[in-house]
Design a protein around this nucleic acid. Sequence first.
DNA 1: TGAAGTTGGATTGTCGACAATATAGAGAGT
DNA 2: ACTCTCTATATTGTCGACAATCCAACTTCA
Lengths: 221, 221
Amino acid sequence: MSPFQEAPVTSSDKTFIALRADVVEGVIKAGAKLSEAELSTNYGVSRAVVREAINRLENASLVERKANVGAKVVTLTLDGLIQLYQVREALEGMAARLAAQNMSDDEIEELQSLLNNHAKQVKNGESYYQEAGDVDFHYRIVLGSHNQQLISMLTNNIYHLVRMYRVQLGMAGPRVTTAFAEHTNIVQAISHRDAELAELLMRRHILYSKNNIEAKLRTIP
Amino acid sequence: MSPFQEAPVTSSDKTFIALRADVVEGVIKAGAKLSEAELSTNYGVSRAVVREAINRLENASLVERKANVGAKVVTLTLDGLIQLYQVREALEGMAARLAAQNMSDDEIEELQSLLNNHAKQVKNGESYYQEAGDVDFHYRIVLGSHNQQLISMLTNNIYHLVRMYRVQLGMAGPRVTTAFAEHTNIVQAISHRDAELAELLMRRHILYSKNNIEAKLRTIP
DNA sequence: TGAAGTTGGATTGTCGACAATATAGAGAGT
DNA sequence: ACTCTCTATATTGTCGACAATCCAACTTCA
């Protein structure tokens, strides 16, 4: 289905995931201070596991910590969004390149059928699932790179921050059908094993997406 | 001087840095198990701070942890090295592109003079400082990107892992003068504010470096 | 009035003890 | 001899208490 980490086993894992969700979804507001004691009672665990969860969030760039002072949820800025998308462009571009080289024929076929499902949804105007579909699409390609380092960086860190921006600054917008066309071209490049083109198209796709969001944001804050 | 993090203030910071150094330099061998109790006595701190240090090392991809089992130092493989350099190519390529756009004239001038010093050293055959010089060069450009996300990923994670491979598999090799020529071209592109070319040259530079190391390694393990 | 120094309260950092889990080895059965 | 089960032990996960640090409010002095 969707981006799944390994199943959480330890209490610390669950707390980390719950806390991350609350930060990403805005239940805990951007810029808010994270009190260890307060979170400890809220999640019903000891301060030690809260601390561990906060540490992990720090590495994911979702909170900032200062020694002897505490941790704050990051603040969302236009500049931060741009920098994030620059990194994303570099990493996902490479992912597309590697996917064109390394994906198995089966994986490519699944990617194709995923795209076909999206095509139906676009025709039916089911805009809700468009977001999930977009995530799925990018996720498949990242996995297809078969590069663990790359997969880890994108799925553990960058995607959560991207989602935090999307959710809290209310992205959804048009760009559905045009993005779908771009997806189609990328898959075509991959299935032709054209690594160079796959990277180029993916980078442009993300760049367009950035420009689109950026334009919307400049009108608000 | 050299890549410096923020000064370590807390006991946990110091332990993390000491432990990381021991892992990178091979004092603790690749693949070895990390016993929390043992490290606790060795570094003279409580298990809690050792655990925090290990967690941070995990995010830096220097150790792998399994719940209820423990942490092991990563094992160094050819495949791991290749994947690492693929990520490095993507990120540093983007860094060079952004550096060409964002570096101040002063920063570029400092980069130039750094290169001049290297030129002298290369002529004198001081091969030792070549490594430090190379690190310095790349570090400056990464900082010049003015992209915090990018800077953090490279300096906190990737560079330490790269160094671990270099140290433990005994890199040094020739490629000194030829690498210097590549550096020169990159700086030229940056000072011309040619972002496209700067990225291209940096990516090729890292790709060559990867191929060089890879060729050496294939003869050994 | 304003600036520097001081103190109290609250928050984070560190510690040792206890609980939960995995793994190696012994033992039983075939 | 081999496999399976079960137990013992060592290691990690979690907890509550104590120590160190920061910050704000208050006092003191020019």
